[in-house]
Simulated scan of single mutants.
Amino acid sequence: MADWADTRVSLAGQGALVGVAMTASAAGACLANVAGIQVTARVVTGISIAAGNSILVLRRGSVYWAIATLGPAPAVPPSLPSTGQDTGSTPPPPSDPAPTPKPTVTTGTLVCPPIATSTWRDGSWRTDIGSSTSADTFQGRYGGSGFGRNSGFAFYGSKPRSIAGATVTKATVRLRRLTSGDYGQRSPTLRLVTQSTRPAGFPTLNESTTGPVLGVVYQVSPWETTFTIPTSWGQAMVDGTRGGLAINISSDDPYIRLAGRGSWSAAWTLTLYWRRSS
């Protein structure tokens, strides 16, 4: 039979609702409290309802149907179906291995001022141009001079090896051209040197590359630069197989003078950019 209780509060469109049986089911119906509204609910055949049961109520048109009783929550969570094995001693099934942790990458910059700048000429280190460990560095022979060719050197000691094991990603050197020879733009020839400290005799020269194009300071620009040398050269210094840089040619020209550390504090400063994985 129709129940007009919902004319006060509409439950239309609410779907299945949970109510409380106010009476036991009898003659296929019971009284129930649904959302604060007392309704007469028809009971689905086969369901027995006692007063106080929580019931699942479904509305169809103006008729309420008690379609199930709701039991209490289980006291113990359900267990997995038995496999006939002692799960207490059976190891868990294998899973995919954890991914390999990504390596930690450290990067840095190492600044290496030269421990000595010197020029070699006629079988010895020049002392007529200042201290033999902070002198300017010359390349070639001055036109008409009776002296031999010059070769200039910068030595870096042990500091590059302080990051041994690192990978060099870039290497630069600071250079400034001073007055000597003509004022036109000229390029020195850079050489990689085996020794890291100044030897008594002529150092061992190795790889070569063309240096920067420079004019004379305050006369022809540019006269100063931060020049990128081959990355492999920086790596060789870190690895300890090389230790210095030089300007050297097998002919007289171009005659070039580059500042040593006594003339310019930044002269021949080597900067190594590096990374390391761990």
Rank of each mutant, 00 (worst) to 15 (best):
P94K: 04
T87R: 11
G84F: 04
P99A: 04
P103T: 14
T107P: 05
G84R: 00
P78C: 03
T109C: 09
D86V: 01
S82E: 09
P94A: 14
C112I: 05
T83C: 06
C112Q: 03
T100G: 09
T100A: 13
T107G: 13
P94G: 13
A98V: 11
G108Q: 07
C112K: 03
P81S: 06
P93M: 01
P103D: 15
T106C: 11
P114M: 04
T109I: 10
P103R: 12
I115L: 09
L80Y: 02
P114Q: 03
P113E: 01
P101E: 06
P81T: 07
S95L: 13
P97E: 13
T90K: 05
T100V: 11
T104M: 10
A116N: 08
P81E: 07
P94V: 13
Q85I: 08
T106M: 10
P114C: 05
G84I: 07
T109Y: 06
D86P: 08
P113T: 00
T109S: 14
T100R: 06
P78A: 12
P94Q: 13
P113G: 01
T107V: 11
S82L: 03
W120S: 06
C112Y: 04
A98H: 02
S118E: 09
T117I: 05
S79F: 02
S89V: 14
T109K: 03
V105C: 14
Q85P: 04
V111D: 02
A98F: 06
V105M: 03
P94M: 11
P92R: 04
P99N: 07
G108H: 08
T90A: 12
T87W: 12
V111Y: 01
C112M: 08
P93V: 05
P92I: 04
P97V: 07
P103V: 12
L110C: 05
P103S: 12
T90H: 08
W120V: 08
P101K: 01
G88E: 11
A116V: 12
P81V: 00
P101M: 07
S95P: 10
D86T: 10
P113Q: 00
T106D: 15
K102V: 15
T117A: 10
T90S: 13
